[in-house]
């Protein structure tokens, strides 16, 4: 595609890039600008594109309407816990599925992968009853169990494809040297697949940080609600006429920033992880 005539090609490419950047960036610009615009100015017709006097009052108001710090902590527990559990469980399963030939391994692999197609909402009621009888509603570990399970199929698929690319000779050599299975997994395999595990940890953290449905249904108290639930709560006390966009934009900025940092830090790993999972 780089074989356009040199001038025409690069002008076209940069024009496309500018359109692309504006379409992607405009909502973020707008959310950020709204969060520092005084709410009196926010409800102007026509809309303002730059605040006359930037302010942090929206952020203060937001932290007064919801227990922001507690929700932030809950989101961190939920995100880190779910991605850790999913990566550990998926890593173990992926190793067994990729390396050990045993009867029924294909069926188990297919069942695990195809269960990704089961809509979350379709099993919500029975799940609620089960989780309720196990006293798992309104608990961090209950939320972590369901969220990590939700992300397992994609994580297993990605890790199986990664392990398949690591040559098995290294492990065979370790066997011949007399290492047992636990030693091989911990000392040989784990260091080899550590980058893949870390990539999936980042991807799964982003996915659970963004999750709305599970916390919305399974977290009813201040100690377990996440920031995404907080975002829906901000809509309630507002007047029927407009939603409190001043506070919602402030909270939105707080929800976007951690994700942006992760992307800045792990862009290459995340792109390769996403592509690998979807291609195989």
């Amino acid at each position: 595609m780089a074989r356009f005539t040199r001038f025409g090609g690069s002008v076209l490419v940069y024009a496309c890039f500018i359109i692309f950047a504006v379409v992607i960036g405009l909502p973020f610009y707008f959310i950020f600008i709204s969060s520092i615009t005084p709410s009196s100015e926010l409800f102007n017709i026509p809309p303002t594109y730059l605040p006359s006097a930037p302010t942090l009052e929206n952020y203060l108001k937001m932290t007064e309407s919801i227990p922001f710090l507690t929700y932030f902590r809950n989101s961190l527990i939920f995100g880190i816990g779910s991605s850790a559990v999913s990566v550990i469980a998926a890593g173990m399963a992926a190793y067994a599925l990729a390396r050990i030939r045993f009867p029924g391994s294909n069926i188990i692999y297919l069942a695990l992968i195809l269960s990704v197609a089961l809509p979350q909402i379709a099993v919500l009621v029975p799940m609620y009853q089960t989780f309720n009888s196990f006293k798992l509603v309104n608990t961090h570990h209950g939320l972590i169990i369901m969220m990590s399970s939700l992300m397992l199929p994609f994580t297993i698929m990605t890790l199986v494809s990664f392990i398949n690319q690591v040559p098995a000779e290294i492990e065979e050599a370790a066997y011949i040297d007399g290492a047992n299975t636990a030693q091989i997994i911990l000392r040989v395999v784990l260091p080899l697949i550590r980058p893949a595990l870390f990539t999936m940890f980042l991807i799964n953290f982003i996915i659970s940080w963004n999750e709305l449905l599970y916390p919305l249904v399974f977290a009813h108290n201040v100690d377990t609600k996440t920031l995404s639930v907080g975002l829906t709560e901000l809509t309630d006390p507002g007047s029927t006429y407009t939603k409190p966009w001043d506070q919602m934009s402030a909270l939105s900025v707080f929800m976007i920033v951690p994700v942006l940092l992760i992307i800045l830090f792990g862009q290459r790993m995340i792109i390769s992880g996403l592509a690998r999972g979807a291609l195989k």
């Binding site: 959310i31 709305l212 975002l231 929800m255 976007i256 992760i262």
Partner: peptide, 11 residues
């Protein structure tokens, strides 16, 4: 892709 769907929907 990475920002919360809730943020995008409300934004």
């Amino acid at each position: 892709w990475a920002i919360p769907m809730a943020v995008a929907a409300l934004g």
